[in-house]
């Protein structure tokens, strides 16, 4: 109960901060737009080629946005040494992890929705038809991305070479999530039933669970002065 209250207040605090400063979200939306243009320039205007590459591009976009966005959420804790205050909070630090994870998840979800809409418009693909299965795949993938990203983001926010180290740690660990989500997205966009990619969904769910448990258990060691 107290755990949930504390996780919630962390989420509340960060959402309020983000709403007032609009530091991350605006930049990430713009970044998503930039990515879209870059993909287009890199692959050429051929619609079919783009459509074939779409699942990969989509997740590449999500992950690139994640690299920019996920590492940032702990920076606000460095101002005025708030980080120390969090360490000194009595009780289970897992609540802070969960709150930050929720913030990161929502941040990613917002960017992903924008990126999806942009892809749909600019590349003229019908994403709406498979919106339900697609949402499930994206949900599972985003939880995996955010749970590891939150843990590593907390770590690297205390390191001088933060921008460099964060992707170096995050990307190799995220390979299973990338493989699973790209394959599942591909199948879903081809109109296949979710049951066809059941093994991928299970793998993603298992990965999410493992990352989440490790994150909850080890976060207290990351959050030390």
């Amino acid at each position: 109960m107290m755990f949930a209250r504390r996780a919630w207040i962390v989420l509340w605090k960060d959402l309020l901060t983000e709403r007032r400063s609009k530091e991350s979200l605006n930049a990430l939306f713009f970044f998503a737009l930039l990515l879209l243009f870059l993909f287009e320039f890199a692959l050429g205007p051929d619609r079919e080629r783009l459509a074939a590459a779409l699942p990969g591009l989509l997740w590449l976009g999500f992950i690139l946005a994640g690299i920019l966005g996920l590492g940032r959420t702990f920076l606000v804790e460095r101002e005025n040494d708030c980080w120390e205050g969090l360490v000194l909070t009595p009780g289970d630090k897992g609540a802070i992890y969960l709150g930050k994870l929720a913030v990161n998840f929502l941040l990613m979800a917002a960017v992903e929705i924008v990126l999806l809409a942009l892809f749909g418009i600019f590349y003229n693909v019908d994403l709406w038809g498979s919106v339900v299965p697609l949402s499930l795949v994206i949900f599972l993938g985003t939880v995996g991305l955010a749970s590891v990203g939150t843990l590593f983001g907390a770590m690297t926010s205390q390191v001088r070479a933060r921008e460099l180290l964060f992707p170096l740690l995050l990307l190799p660990v995220q390979v299973p999530v990338l493989l699973g989500t790209v394959k599942a997205t591909e199948a879903v966009l081809q109109g296949l039933a979710l049951a066809e990619v059941g093994h991928w969904l299970k793998l993603l769910a298992a990965a999410d669970l493992v990352y989440l448990v490790v994150g909850l258990l080890t976060f207290e060691f990351v959050l030390e002065a």
Binding site: R5, R6, I9, V10, W12, K13, L16, T17, R20, S21, V76, E79, N80, D81, C82, E84, G85, L86, T89
Partner: peptide, 20 residues
């Protein structure tokens, strides 16, 4: 460090730390 979040009000800051 004051452990103050710059974008929160005084009362919101206290609410956060009290709940934590």
């Amino acid at each position: 460090g004051s452990y103050v979040y710059e974008d929160l009000t005084a009362e919101e800051n206290l609410r956060f730390w009290a709940t934590m």
